[in-house]
Amino acid sequence: MAEGLEPMWENLSVIQSRWPDNRLDLYLLKETLWNVLMALDYVHTERKIIHTNIKADNILVSIADSAILQQFEEDEHTYPSPRKFVGGRTIYQSRSWREPREYGMPMLTDFGAAVFGEEKHNHDAQPGAYREKKLSHKGTFGGGNWASETTPCGFDQAWQEKSRVI
C-alpha cells in the first residue's frame, strides 16, 4: 500500500511577504488560526504530541486551484528547469508558481522538533527566534496548552497589532 502526500503550495511567510505591508488577508489569517488551533487540539488531545516549532514557515497552504499544477507541468515540459548532476543525483532549480485564484486549507507541518506530551521535558519549548520572552526560561513542560499562547508568534505584525486591540 502506497500513501501519497497532497501537493502543497507555499508557506505562510512567503504568502505574507506578497501582501501589502507584509500583512495577511484577514480571511486567510482567521482561516489559518482556526486550522492551526484545530490541528494543535488534535495532536495534543488525541496523539499527546507537542509541536514546539510553530511559526509561519511551518504552515503550508494546500493547492485548491488544480490549474496551477497543470500549468507547472506544461511549463516544465516546454521550458525544462535548469539542473545539475552531483554525485549521481539530479538537482533541479526551483520554478515559481503563479498566484492561485483561491487558497487551499492551511496545514501545520514540520513535526521534526515535536515531543511526546505525556513526558516531562527540560529544554526550551521553541527555537529562540520564535520564543516569547515569558517562555524563554528553561522549565518543565508537557501535556499543557502552552502552545496555543505561542501560536501567533509566527504571524508577526498582523497578529501583534490585532492582539493589542483585543
Rank of each mutant, 00 (worst) to 15 (best):
G154F: 02
H51M: 10
G144S: 15
N22D: 12
W146Y: 14
R95Q: 07
W97N: 00
D75E: 07
F72G: 01
I54M: 05
D25N: 13
K55A: 09
G144P: 00
P106E: 03
D75C: 00
S66D: 11
L135S: 01
M38K: 14
M107H: 08
Y103I: 03
M107D: 00
P106L: 01
Y42T: 07
K55V: 02
V43Q: 09
E76C: 07
L135D: 04
E118C: 04
G88F: 04
L29R: 02
L33N: 02
M38P: 03
F72K: 04
A67R: 01
E76I: 07
T90D: 09
K133L: 12
V86F: 13
A113L: 15
E118A: 09
L135A: 06
K133D: 08
V36S: 02
G139T: 11
F85L: 12
F155L: 15
I54C: 00
A67W: 00
F155E: 01
P82R: 12
A113I: 00
S66Q: 09
Q70W: 01
K120G: 05
P106K: 02
A114L: 12
A113P: 03
E102T: 07
F72Y: 06
Y27K: 12
F116V: 08
A56D: 13
I50L: 15
E99Q: 03
N145L: 13
S148P: 00
A147Q: 10
D75V: 00
D25R: 09
K133H: 11
K48T: 08
K55T: 02
D156Y: 11
E118W: 07
E99N: 02
V36A: 05
F85W: 06
T32D: 01
R101M: 07
M107A: 12
T150L: 11
N145D: 15
I91P: 02
L33W: 06
A113H: 05
D110E: 11
S94D: 05
S94P: 01
R47E: 14
P152V: 10
Q70E: 09
A39L: 07
L29C: 09
E118R: 12
P80Y: 01
D110A: 12
K120D: 09
G142N: 07
N35I: 01
R89L: 14
L28R: 00
M38R: 14
A39C: 10
Q126E: 11
K30W: 08
S81L: 03
L29W: 09
E119A: 14
I49P: 05
I63R: 02
V115L: 15
I91Q: 09
E74P: 00
D57Y: 05
E119P: 03
W34N: 06
P80W: 01
K84D: 08
N22G: 07
I50E: 06
K120E: 12
A129M: 13
K133Q: 09
K48R: 13
W97V: 04
E74A: 04
N58F: 01
G117N: 11
S136M: 14
E73V: 07
N145T: 12
D110N: 15
